[in-house]
């Protein structure tokens, strides 16, 4: 994973609540065995609608998605994160998120900015009025800012997620360094057994 310190770019307002991961990437896209190429499937059922906000020229190339509450609930498919990133999003701003989606995002370096509803609404209004506004998400100081509008809010990330984002750390590499700890645990732990089954 690449290190992420600052996300800077334009933002697109989705203005929908309860956007589940089936909406982010429908199941027909889940048959692929690769990790790339999911961007074309992003919100694919909505993309056919010319009025859908992602089809608006003024939001082309936006890197920040501003969404409604409970973004990314439902299926655990990490394909949702791959699709958002493959499309070019580097951060998602919403009042709340699905737990597994939030976790998956942290593994890929997609920045999750959770703000109170009224702040998300304020940001939505700003970028609806002027789609060209630059939005800056500072992962070091945990602040989101729209400098031209003089609008700035703090946000919270759990410290281990922040550390991993800033350093671009790969979880597996980190855990494998703790191999002795794991082995010590295994040496005194008797896990359940189902050997009979596997032999049969």
């Amino acid at each position: 994973m690449k290190s992420v310190r600052v996300v800077e770019g334009r933002a697109v307002p989705l203005e929908r609540a309860d956007v589940d991961t089936d909406q982010i990437i429908p199941s027909e896209w889940l048959k692929r065995v690769e990790r790339t190429g999911f961007g074309r499937g992003l919100f694919s059922e909505w993309r056919d609608d010319p009025g859908f906000v992602l089809n608006q020229a003024e939001y082309a190339g936006a890197t920040i998605l501003v969404a409604g509450p409970r973004f990314g609930t439902g299926s655990s498919r990490e394909h949702a994160v791959w699709a958002l990133m493959d499309h070019g999003f580097a951060a998602i701003v919403a009042p709340s998120f699905g737990d597994i989606f939030r976790n998956n995002s942290s593994k890929q370096g997609l920045v999750i900015v959770q703000l109170p509803s009224e702040d998300v609404e304020a940001l939505t209004a700003l970028v609806k009025n002027s789609p060209t506004l630059l939005v800056v998400i500072d992962v070091v100081n945990l602040e989101i800012e729209v400098p031209q509008a003089n609008w700035r809010r703090p946000f919270v990330l759990d410290p281990s997620t922040q550390e991993r984002l800033l350093n671009g750390w790969d979880d597996i590499g980190l855990t494998l360094r703790r191999d002795e700890e794991i082995a010590a645990f295994e040496s005194h732990y008797a896990p359940p057994s189902w050997t009979g089954l596997v032999d049969a």
């Binding site: 655990s76 498919r77 990490e78 394909h79 994160v81 597994i100 976790n103 998956n104 593994k107 890929q108 759990d158 281990s160 979880d171 597996i172 855990t175 494998l176 794991i182 295994e186």
Partner: peptide, 20 residues
């Protein structure tokens, strides 16, 4: 509980999960 694919890889490699 359910996990994403990066976590599947993590469990395959380490038999553990980073957890809060």
């Amino acid at each position: 509980f359910g996990i994403g694919t990066s976590e599947v890889e993590h469990v395959l490699a380490t038999q553990t999960l980073v957890s809060q």
